[in-house]
């Protein structure tokens, strides 16, 4: 990782070129599981953003004190701590949203994306850069979740953010479990297609 990244670059990298869902293909369980509405995607996105940013900062702050041998356990402990915090906070202040996300908030602890960012970025870079990187990754995750949620909510229940926009429910299929796979698969392919098209038009390949 280069040191001279600006904050904007770090954020845009998380959202676009290294989007955790569509590009890195990490932490896809919730992307398929609970992305039935935009709101669900947003809420889980917020939770992940919180955990990612705080874990990145924590690890970056203490990076010199972490013994290399116990690197992974320390990461896990840090993540678990912040997940517990956001879990308790959500359960207390947003019980309805929390009930919808079910077990997935607790499962943030097992998201590969967070551990990966800690290992690859936060344990080497400064606090400030780690913050921006965490923010970028978290936002990327949130945007991805919301995009999937948008498609599924619109097609599945004819609504966006709970507001009925179509007036009818086009295809119930899209809010069913299995549709998550199709929507994510098709969206990934769509982004790949854009990339291929872009490269071709630039004469790169």
């Amino acid at each position: 990782m280069a040191n001279d990244k600006s904050s904007m670059q770090l954020i845009s990298r998380g959202i676009l070129s290294e989007n955790p869902i569509f590009k890195l293909a990490l932490s896809m369980c919730p992307a398929v599981g609970i992305s039935t509405t935009v709101m669900n995607g947003f809420m889980l996105g917020v939770a992940v953003l919180f955990v990612q940013v705080f874990s990145s900062i924590t690890i970056s702050l203490f990076k010199n004190l972490i013994h290399p041998r116990i690197r992974i356990p320390t990461y896990t402990l840090t993540i678990a701590t912040w997940v517990t915090v956001i879990d308790l906070v959500l359960a207390a202040y947003m019980p309805e949203a929390y009930a919808k996300m079910g077990i997935f908030v607790k499962l943030i602890v097992a998201f590969a994306i967070i551990t990966m960012r800690l290992e690859m970025f936060a344990c080497k870079e400064s606090v400030k850069d780690s913050f921006w990187d965490g923010l970028g990754m978290g936002l990327g995750f949130m945007v991805g979740m919301m995009a999937i949620g948008f498609v599924r909510e619109l097609l599945g229940s004819g609504a966006i953010l709970g507001y009925d926009v179509l007036g009818f429910k086009p295809l119930l299929f899209f809010i069913l479990p299995s549709a998550g796979f199709f929507v994510v698969g098709l969206m990934m392919a769509f982004f790949n297609w854009i990339e291929i098209y872009y490269k071709r038009s630039r004469g790169l390949k």
Binding site: L171, L172, F173, L176, S178, A179
Partner: peptide, 8 residues
């Protein structure tokens, strides 16, 4: 199966 899921 798709129809059954969409229009139960």
């Amino acid at each position: 199966a798709f129809l059954l899921a969409s229009f139960p």
